[in-house]
Design a protein around this nucleic acid. Structure first.
Lengths: 337, 337
DNA sequence: ATTTAGCACTCTTCGCTTGACAGTGCTATT
DNA sequence: AATAGCACTGTCAAGCGAAGAGTGCTAAAT
């Protein structure tokens, strides 16, 4: 068990290091706490032995370890929501006519500006969105565009080239039938439902004109399932002293550019705010970054995730309440409907 | 007028510098041309006096100046299309059911892989696309989603919240009328046409139920006009020796992240391939980069632009033919329709 | 039993010098 | 016109030393 003074030392080391990015020495702390450097040094030695602190070299000040950050976030930190600029966030959500993607995108842009870190939003998984309408619009010759609209106003389009042996009337018939069958079916169950209906003879005769049509439909639906994400403030990271090394920068930017984001942030933990520090991130490029993520709800049972990515030396005290507030706000916005 | 040997010297300096990124000395060239270092040095001194070459410091080898690159690209370089991997590009265009945006995106991804530079595509300006269909789909309560589909299968959607005093029947009527009026009207002329028709009494009574509906329509259309662009291979630049300085990297990444791309690449020069070297780019962050851009045609009178951005020390000999080939290919693909 | 003062020790950082090296310009020669 | 020779210039990396920040430990003070 840590003494109160030890807790103070640990807390102050984290907060000081977050500010300055320099290892914190006993002299600095002795000014903040009313003890001599020597006393502080003893506590620091204890905290190091317990694994909360580290040294960068044998005679340097101390730096929090991953364990130290964890302890800080979980028990030492007091959330500081006075600095949140509530108005800015509230303003963001005033125009209700923005579509979903735009809203999310603007939210993370704002978030990366406010925090100076990189932010990521995973679009809500559309599995629970329901099909509202299916449209097929002929363009020219045998090319048409297939539209699928969900109950939340999300639209997916896919161009399809029709085989020779299908004519337009047959096609509109198919679409009409599909609309009857699929309306209000959750995206995640479309494929299943469709196969079931086909087996029921009813629409079989129409659909087996050609397999390709069915495939095109299914592909359009599968695009919903694709995890879209938004990324903002990548270059913020370049101003963090931990990325003063070019090799690191390359690694980081490569990571952002490749589509591996999903390995870093996922909706799996939909229980609330999660903090992943350093090596807890499975991605090696992120081994000295932290990710704070929180799910947001859209409409009925749909979830997305917004996350802030920064160095392990992240300003948790600022980021965490901000992220909570923003996620709650997004959820509230969509729960009106 | 340059002697043949001087031309050879200039050409080889460019090509050698492109390869190694190191200033080129007389010894190196004397191995490639059959003259002694001293002779080469005289030519180099002449070329420097004429402004084609520069020194990094008083006793270094020579480096091409912007003028030197220009002369190289315009008269010295011979396009090397044997290295183009035709098959890879051809493969890209096999699946004809991809929609337009996806095709363009994949094209520049490929391009950035093949060149190791950053590539940009400006989506075609939709001004000449024609309206194919307008749809309004009610979602819940007073919220609907408005769809506009063009003759090329591009879809834009916008959510609108309807004012209290409009009911659904009135609305479907409006959409029906809009369809009649606007079908086959080029996007660029929609606003004009709409205002004209309103003045003609015919639809006035319907539309002035509420200004907001009209505004929502116009906004949906204006989204087409927004210049979309795709960016790929940003991090490729980080491996160029000219970006070994962190401050440069920041400047570059900031530029890519801000929406200033349009200041660098535009469709204004739709006359064919354009090469902008160094300070010719109006953007200061790009003052030692070159941009090679070429327009591509989509369908009828629609143009987009694809561009390769690299250091001024770019492998023009490889990039230029590649870009030409790719643009021609995209154009061909869409001219079938 | 804590806390503190004092001191030797460790490690980093920064500025300076030095020598090797690559390349030039100029002059005299072929 | 082309080349050989040579003095000169600038860059780069390695090595060195002094300054500075911070520690651990021991002995003294509270």
């Amino acid at each position: 068990m840590l003494s109160q003074r030890q807790k103070d030392v640990l807390r102050l080391i984290v907060e000081e290091f977050v500010k300055t990015a320099e290892p914190v020495g006993s002299r600095t702390l002795s000014k903040l706490l009313d003890f001599s450097p020597a006393t502080i040094r003893n506590d620091m030695a204890d905290l190091e032995e317990l694994g909360y602190l580290e040294k960068t070299h044998s005679s340097s000040g101390r730096v929090p370890s991953e364990k130290g950050y964890h302890y800080y976030v979980e028990t030492l930190m007091q959330e500081d929501d006075t600095t949140i600029d509530l108005k800015v966030i509230d303003n963001l959500f005033k125009d209700s006519d923005k579509n979903r993607d735009d809203t999310i995108e603007e939210a993370i842009n704002l978030l990366s500006q406010l925090t100076n870190y990189t932010t990521i939003a995973l679009g809500p998984q559309a599995r629970n969105s329901k099909v509202k309408r299916i449209e097929l619009i002929p363009l020219y010759e045998r090319v048409s565009v297939l539209l699928v609209i969900t109950n939340l106003g999300h639209v997916e389009s896919k161009q399809i080239t029709l085989p020779e042996n299908v004519n337009l009337e047959q096609l509109t018939k198919i679409v009409q039938i599909l609309n009857e069958i699929l309306i209000d079916v959750p995206i995640g169950q479309v494929s299943e439902k469709l196969h079931y209906e086909i087996s029921q003879q009813s629409i079989k005769e129409l659909l087996d004109y050609n397999e390709r049509i069915l495939d095109a439909f299914l592909e359009a639906f599968s695009q919903f399932a694709e995890s879209k994400y938004f990324l903002s403030g990548q270059s913020n990271m370049l101003y963090q002293p931990e990325f003063s090394d070019l090799e690191r920068v390359r690694e980081l930017m490569n990571f952002f550019e490749r589509n591996d984001i999903l390995k870093l942030v996922d909706h799996s933990d939909n229980k609330g705010l999660t903090v992943r520090i350093g090596h807890e991130n499975q991605v090696t490029a992120m081994k000295d970054c932290s990710v704070v993520m929180v799910p947001y709800d859209i409409g009925h049972e749909e979830q997305g995730t917004i996350a802030v990515v920064g160095p392990t030396r992240m300003d948790y005290q600022k980021v965490i309440p901000l992220l909570k507030y923003l996620a709650a706000h997004i959820s509230k916005l969509y729960h009106k409907s």
